[in-house]
């Protein structure tokens, strides 16, 4: 008997693509996508249920459809489309709590896969070079995405304690890049001139979008419990990334970058949050030993390859004027 997978956050591109990929997997019988708004693209064999995970309706969906695997990926990084920060927090935290409550009540759910992020580790000068899964942030995140994810992870751990029979897999994905990714970080790299903090060269780690889809599917199919860092091999510094992108960058003091980011956020040009500023100042590295040894997952793209793929996508739209301006033939 195949599995019945429920995917939250299907209206976003990455959720929709994961649901489609999962639906084509032979070991998965049915995929149900849940979101507040209908998905924008083609969802193929995925059946869509319009439901808000912030209210108890979701429990009925779980029961009615005999869902045995829940893939929670509706945690959003930017208020952007949702509205204000308040709505974003509600969607992320209250939505996750409701979903977990529904899972706890459910008798059919056997597996829960949560797409988390390495942003929970924060970024500070007191960070170790590589975070392992046992480590926490040096300073608790004060606001924003990082705080939401930190709180959600707490609730997920609580759920795992209360329902030891459910295999809970938490995927802490590094910053996802790829041709289709629309995230604060990819928007940052899409800026025509890249602002950066003077005198800092952070180490960045990327995960290719295809690898993210693969690892979520891997987790949903194998059901190996635990928390896993997932990132491409190797590191890139911001200098390398900017130079490989072939874009000009301008270095300014850290506070000026923060001010610029706030201005751009108000003007809706780019989303440059405080935690992103921290990331782009101090960087972060995560250890992926457990991903290999326990989860048994091998990313196809290294950090550098993932970023190169992202650069290739940028080439047709930005390269032509860029090349003329920069003057390299």
């Amino acid at each position: 008997m195949g599995r019945v997978v429920l995917v939250t956050g299907i209206s976003r591109d990455i959720g929709r693509r994961f649901a489609r990929a999962a639906a084509s997997d032979p070991s998965i019988e049915r995929v149900i996508g849940v979101d507040v708004v209908p998905p924008r693209g083609d969802i193929g064999d995925v059946s869509f249920v319009r439901a808000d995970i912030r209210n108890p309706v979701i429990a009925k969906v779980l029961a009615k459809e005999d869902v045995d695997t829940v893939v929670h990926m509706s945690v959003i990084a930017t208020p952007g489309s949702a509205g204000g920060r308040g709505t974003m927090k509600e969607l992320n935290v209250i939505g996750s709590m409701q979903l977990l409550a529904a899972c706890q009540k459910s008798t059919t759910v056997e597996r829960l896969v949560v797409k988390s992020t390495t942003t929970v580790y924060g970024s500070s000068p007191r960070d170790p070079a590589m975070f392992t899964e046992d480590m926490g942030p040096k300073r608790l995140p004060a606001s924003g995405y990082a705080k939401d994810v930190y709180e959600i992870e707490g609730y997920v751990r609580g759920f795992a304690r209360r329902r030891p029979d459910v295999a809970v897999t938490m995927i802490r994905a590094a910053n996802v890049v790829g041709p289709h990714v629309d995230s604060p970080l990819t928007n940052y790299f899409r800026l025509p001139v890249i602002p950066r903090a003077l005198g800092f060269d952070p180490r960045l780690q990327f995960l290719h979008e295809d690898d993210l889809l693969r690892v979520l599917r891997h987790a949903a199919i194998t059901g190996i419990p635990g928390t896993f860092n997932v990132a491409g091999d190797g590191m890139l510094t911001l200098t390398q990334a900017v130079r490989r992108l072939g874009k000009p960058s301008v270095s300014m003091p850290r506070f000026a970058v923060g001010r610029l980011g706030a201005t751009m956020r108000q003007a809706r040009l780019s989303d440059f949050s405080p935690e992103q500023l921290g990331f782009l100042t101090y960087g972060r590295g995560v250890d992926t030993t457990r991903m290999r040894d326990v989860l048994g997952f091998e990313p196809r793209f290294t950090t550098a390859e993932a970023f190169a793929d992202f650069c290739r996508e940028m080439a047709p739209t930005t390269e032509a004027p860029e090349r003329v301006a920069a003057g390299h033939g």
Binding site: P125, P128, A129, M130, M135, A197, G199, F200, D201, R203
Partner: peptide, 26 residues
């Protein structure tokens, strides 16, 4: 020391020349 990684310029030079933070993990 963590001060090294807090200071601009010094922090990036330190990492590039092979230094890392003095903590048990590293």
């Amino acid at each position: 020391a963590d001060l090294v990684f807090k200071m601009p310029v010094v922090s990036s030079l330190a990492r590039k020349s092979g230094a890392t933070l003095a903590c048990v993990e590293d």
